[in-house]
């Protein structure tokens, strides 16, 4: 029996949609610029640069909205980790992914109104949103405004460049895993439908 929960209000869906599209744009244009070749460009270099700039600025503004939204609404509670018992919860979730899921076990921490993310999801989102995103945005700004970076005397731009590229790879990994884990819903596509409709479909009773 499935239960429907209205988990994703319009503004979250819109925010998520913008982030998703811009992330894809940034990955494709980023790879195109990094591996550009005169004869076979994935996207023409100058166009890739412009699109990457647009994507970067949009994601940065979206990130500021995320920070402000978490301050003024109760959405921030989903990103707060309670140290007590969290390691056990992580172990439980991890065990489920590498063992339980293959045995047909039920998820140990099913989604509910109060627990939108399972422990592993929560940890990865916190790391991405509070560490990965600031790093990639700040290094991106350094590359976007190299003169300001020079003036501030923040050292060599190469360091910012290499960190930006590596963080881009890490966030691409996150994106791939995020997409894959989205297939863990009641059906393969139910979570994708949820983020469009706002209604989460679960085979579990609300916890």
């Amino acid at each position: 029996m499935s239960h429907n929960l209205y988990l994703y209000p319009k503004f979250i869906r819109l925010w998520h949609f913008i982030n998703a599209v811009m992330f894809l744009l940034l990955i494709v244009t980023g790879l195109s610029m990094q591996y550009t070749a005169p004869d076979s460009p994935l996207i023409r270099f100058d166009i890739a640069v412009k699109l990457h700039d647009i994507g970067g600025i949009t994601v940065s503004i979206n990130y500021l909205l995320f920070l402000m939204g978490n301050m003024v609404t109760d959405n921030g509670k989903y990103y707060r980790i309670q140290a007590k018992g969290f390691t056990t919860e992580l172990k439980g979730q991890f065990r489920y992914y590498i063992w339980g899921i293959f045995k047909g076990e039920a998820p140990p921490y099913p989604i509910s109104k109060d627990r939108k993310f399972n422990p592993l999801q929560k940890l990865s989102y916190v790391l991405v949103m509070y560490m990965g995103m600031p790093v990639i945005i700040l290094t991106g700004l350094a590359l976007f405004f190299p003169q300001v970076f020079d003036l501030l005397g923040l050292g060599s731009l190469i360091v910012a460049d290499v960190i930006h590229v590596l963080m881009g790879i890490v966030l691409t990994m996150f994106m791939l895993i995020h997409l894959y884990f989205s297939t863990f819903g009641r059906t393969m596509f139910s979570n994708f439908k949820s983020i469009i409709s706002g209604w989460h479909e679960s085979s579990q009773a609300p916890g």
């Binding site: 610029m33 990094q34 591996y35 590359l143 190299p146 190469i158 910012a160 290499v162 590596l166 790879i169």
Partner: peptide
């Protein structure tokens, strides 16, 4: 050198690490 030349500078170490991770 120390130039940041997008599209041209390819550290083999960074590239290898990126490829392994992906």
């Amino acid at each position: 050198g120390d130039a940041v030349l997008i599209g041209s500078r390819r550290s083999t170490t960074v590239n290898l690490l990126s490829n392994i991770l992906i």
